[in-house]
Simulated assay, not measured.
Amino acid sequence: MTYCVGMMLDRGLVFMSDTRTNAGLDNISTFRKMKIFENPGERVLTLMSAGNLATTQAVISLLEERTKAPDDRDPSLMAAPSMFQAARLVADVLREVIEAHAQTGQQADSAFNATMMLGGQIYGGPPRMFLIYPEGNFIESGEDTPFFQIGEIKYGRPILVRAYRPDMSFEKALRLLLVSFDSTLKANLTVGAPFDYHVYETDSLKTGKTGRIELDDPYFQTVSRDWGTALTDALDRLPTYEF
């Protein structure tokens, strides 16, 4: 399983993904699920993926190959004129890979499924973010949907819904995301550290601050511990139910 979040702020975009993949409790591995495509001064695109690992890796490999040798039949992600067209390109490649696997004779409907999230900015347009489904269609974030989640979304969603603010700083956004990821990994063993992040500032048109947060990172441990304490204290302060 996977957990990835993309968030739109007034200042830019923030992305975070876990790195755990599993094929059963005795077969757990670590794979990066975030890929950044960059042409400094012209575009920065962040792609995150959830679902079948072979499918997501095939999609990313095809996108990378086509940036090196683009042609009319296989357009390059680095040549897309807008974020919308970039999302269409990723959607087409995702559908192409899933259909190719399904035609090999193995017909399990969800066996090769994957969901992807694409966010970034291309010169001449604003930052945009898209959630791309395995069927090849997609939706765009906006004021009513300022953040997207893919993978194991239910455990980390409540804190995002309650605490997200579009004017929050990048630092507060990362703190919020770490609380969301902490809640998820405590509830589901198939999500795990380390966590990769990318912070993109609007109109910078270059890769922003990136990093990896390990499970034993002192700051993450402090956030996890203090959040648990704060929840307990808040519960104790609530009025007692009277029978």
Rank of each mutant, 00 (worst) to 15 (best):
A111M: 06
S141Q: 06
P75Q: 02
G208F: 01
F130H: 10
R128P: 07
Y197A: 05
V191S: 00
H101D: 15
S49E: 02
V44Q: 04
D74P: 01
I122Y: 08
R88H: 09
Y241E: 09
A23I: 14
T229M: 12
F15I: 06
F147S: 14
T46K: 00
M117N: 03
F195T: 02
G228E: 14
K206L: 08
G124E: 13
H198P: 01
D217L: 03
T21R: 01
F31Q: 07
I150E: 04
R128N: 06
Q121K: 10
D233E: 11
L185H: 00
L25T: 06
Q57C: 04
M78R: 07
V179N: 02
L215K: 11
R128E: 03
L185W: 01
H101A: 15
P70H: 12
R237H: 11
L47A: 01
A187H: 03
G151Q: 01
G156I: 13
L189P: 05
R11L: 13
R20A: 02
T207C: 10
A91M: 07
A23V: 08
P146V: 05
A50S: 12
S180F: 01
T184K: 00
R237C: 13
D71C: 11
D74M: 10
F170G: 13
D18T: 06
L89M: 05
P194N: 08
L63N: 00
D203F: 13
D233C: 04
T19C: 04
S17T: 10
A187P: 03
L215A: 15
I139L: 11
P126L: 09
Q106E: 12
L238K: 03
A50W: 02
F31K: 09
D226K: 15
S29K: 12
P126S: 08
T190G: 04
L45Y: 00
A91F: 06
L94D: 06
S183N: 14
L77M: 02
R128D: 07
L89A: 12
E152K: 03
D109Y: 09
D109T: 07
R212K: 14
T46M: 01
Y241C: 12
L47K: 00
D109R: 14
S204N: 04
S29E: 09
T2Y: 08
M7F: 01
A54P: 10
P81Y: 07
M83L: 13
A100D: 15
A86G: 14
A69W: 06
D72T: 11
T184N: 00
H198L: 08
D203A: 13
P158G: 09
L89S: 02
I98H: 10
T202R: 08
T2L: 06
T21Q: 04
T19V: 08
F37T: 03
D233G: 08
V179H: 03
E65C: 06
T202V: 15
T115E: 00
F130W: 04
L238T: 01
R175M: 02
C4H: 06
Y241M: 11
D167F: 14
L9V: 09
V223T: 14
G192F: 03
L25D: 15
D74E: 05
Y164P: 11
L62T: 14
L9T: 13
N188D: 13
V59R: 01
D74G: 12
N113M: 12
N22T: 10
A79L: 15
A108N: 05
L25M: 11
Y155L: 05
P166R: 14
D226L: 15
L238Q: 05
M48D: 01
